[in-house]
Amino acid sequence: MTNLVFRGSLLLALSVLVLFVALFLASSLVYSGPGRAFEILARSEARHAILLSLTTSSIATALALVLGVPAAYALTRWNIRGRAVLDILLDLPIVLPPLVAGFSLLLLYALIERTFGNGFSQGPLDLRFTRQGIVLAQFTIAAPLAVRVLRATFAEVPVRMETMSRSLGHGEAATFAKISLPMARSGILAGTILVWARSIAEFGPILVFAGAVRGKTDVLPIAIFLSFSNGEIENGVALSVLLIFLGALALAGIRRLGGRLVLG
């Protein structure tokens, strides 16, 4: 195969892929035009979905970071026996079919009820088909994703830098706060955006665990699903365009932060 043929086939593959992605994204953008999309997005039910999505995904991301940052650091720095098993366990929710993740959450409640009785999982702890349940469903995927991304980020901080800090008199916690965290800052910020973008686009676990109730649990993906189910195509398309826009914005933000570790 000559160089020309080889390069030609690379170019062909790249062009087909770029054209395919551009066209399927553009189809939503041109469906009803920007004017109509803005009009739909200004309606109260759309504003409710947007606000609910922004709130729940931000809370889920914050919770994922609170647990994910220390967990990822521990996994990066400690020699843990059975690390491979731990890795697989924590990565599983990322690769599981989203519906399975949602069902698993429901089954967790069933298990708790069977073990501790109804009292434990009812009242404020019963998050099924609630807005708090949306956060839990998003967190289920967001936390393992945060750990995965942050591990790569912490692995880039040279251990020698941390040892130098310690030989200059700072303990483990102070070194984490003064060296590891600031040196991993860009990666943490890029990872935060990625986790948030994934949370705001989450659908399967929310549908199963929190339900699809208009005016209550209809975050953007659920609202899109309800719109298409009810034949309100223009509404669904307008909300889809918004999600595409938010996704593009998140990716641009990650790139700006030098998210090499996050995006590859």
Binding site: R160, M161, M164, R166, S167, G169, G171, M183
Partner: peptide
């Protein structure tokens, strides 16, 4: 642990905090 040894080390590459 290194912080208890009270040995100040200047390595070849300096290891300054960037």
């Amino acid at each position: 642990v290194a912080e208890r040894r009270r040995i100040a080390y200047v390595p070849q590459d300096g290891l300054l905090f960037p």
